[in-house]
Write a protein that binds this DNA or RNA. Structure first.
Lengths: 236, 236
DNA sequence: TCAAAAGTGTTACAGATACACCCATGT
DNA sequence: ACATGGGTGTATCTGTAACACTTTTGA
């Protein structure tokens, strides 16, 4: 390696907005960590940390996620890079934000990490956050709400087998629709997409007629994507 | 400032994918720079450079854009942050990519910068690019093609006053549709959106009936956005 | 037998698509 | 007069929205 840069360099971190969802209480939650040291000691913040010199950003985000929640193999996507010069009082820190989706019904995140205080907060009842983390949260929530409308990422928050009502309620929780989604039309629409496999399994232990379970068929989705990619033109 | 970080830090750069469009030749172009120094000496690359310690990333991207093209006040949006550890042979360099949209009919970018060789390339006829810039280009093009379908960013590539046919041809150039857009339906659809102002001005110097000119009404668009934001639910 | 959610069809309306001719202008 | 793109309306089809009752199960 015969070249090197000698410019002053900002520090580089990743921060993760970890969304969790459980069908039982039907609300969208975010994992926060209470800071044990200055600055912002005692304030809640997004999990995150420094990027190592030999890992790429997604690897760093996965590592943080593993350290904080014990969770791996979940949906993780780059969100935005935040770079306001004064965003960290300790000096110049640029942070690449990621967001993750965790199905709390099927994955068991460990309750707490190290000595830190870790907690899930309802996205609608967040405490004040350290640094510019409120801005990051807001960006993540807007991204999730937008993306869930045109990509099948909602399934990343559900267990592998789920009844249609769970999917419907999930959408209602993420989007804050003024009217609830209509049962029959939702069913028609989603089944017509052809990306769900009906299973010969049913809900158990419910005090009403047991609903059929479905699974998301990623392969079918990708095949359909390829086919329809160039055919239509929507214009806003 | 009583805290400082002492970790090893990747270098941080911005790279810009500068899209240019001119109605006269109706093709989408990208600004490239031929490298004068190693590594990749002689190869074509995206314009870009280091981020200063006191500027945020968007400011850095604007500065680069100004230096390379003399252009300012154009559409500029963060694209993605690229971080593969070996993407730059000189050492660890993380790059935040931006993309810009320039209406070549109304804005005059200066032909060349410094001693560098600068050129516009048709997006469908790109030369091999230095570093991971082909990946960045590909990401930018996919973003532009996706975004143009659901946000009115096409207007950023047209002069302030334009005939509807220019808009239609622009969409055809950006998306590679298998069939051309149908004139009457395109007109109906776009006018019904209510975000174009018809002007009392017409094309000049054309060897056929002169088309009415329109302008994009950003305020109307934003008002409509607010109103319709939560009302509909599309589901892919 | 009651409570609670599952499952099912039809009608009305809106938006999308397909399609062909006359008009205005410059050469 | 001719070549070139501008501008216009209708019929059909497809997808969306609104709406109520019967079925199954556990308590």
């Amino acid at each position: 390696m015969s070249y090197t840069y000698k410019y002053p360099r900002p520090a580089l971190t990743v921060d993760c907005v970890v969304f969790g969802y459980s069908s039982s209480n039907a609300n969208l939650q975010v994992l926060l960590i209470q800071r044990g040291i200055e600055p912002y000691k005692g304030a809640w913040a997004l999990p995150g940390g420094f990027v190592n010199m030999d890992e790429d950003l997604e690897t760093a985000a996965k590592r943080e996620l593993q350290e904080e929640t014990g969770v791996c193999n979940v949906f993780l996507e780059q969100l935005f890079t935040f770079s306001a010069p004064q965003r960290d009082p300790r000096g110049r820190v640029v942070s690449v934000a990621y967001y993750a989706l965790i199905p709390l019904d099927s994955v068991q995140p460990k309750a707490a990490d190290d000595a830190d205080n870790v907690a899930w907060y309802n996205v609608n009842k967040l405490p004040p956050l350290a640094f510019d983390h409120s801005l990051i949260m807001d960006t993540a929530l807007r991204r999730l709400r937008a993306k869930v409308r045109y990509q099948p990422i909602g399934f990343e928050l559900l267990p592998p087998k789920f009844p249609l009502s769970a999917l419907r309620i999930l959408y209602q929780s993420i989007l804050n629709l003024d009217k609830p989604l209509e049962k029959r039309n939702f069913r028609k629409k989603i089944l017509k997409l052809g990306i769900l496999n009906p299973l010969d399994e049913y809900q158990q232990g419910v005090a009403h007629r047991a609903a059929r379970l479905y699974s998301f068929d990623k392969q079918k989705y990708e095949q359909l994507q390829k086919r329809e990619a160039v055919l239509s033109f929507d214009l806003f």
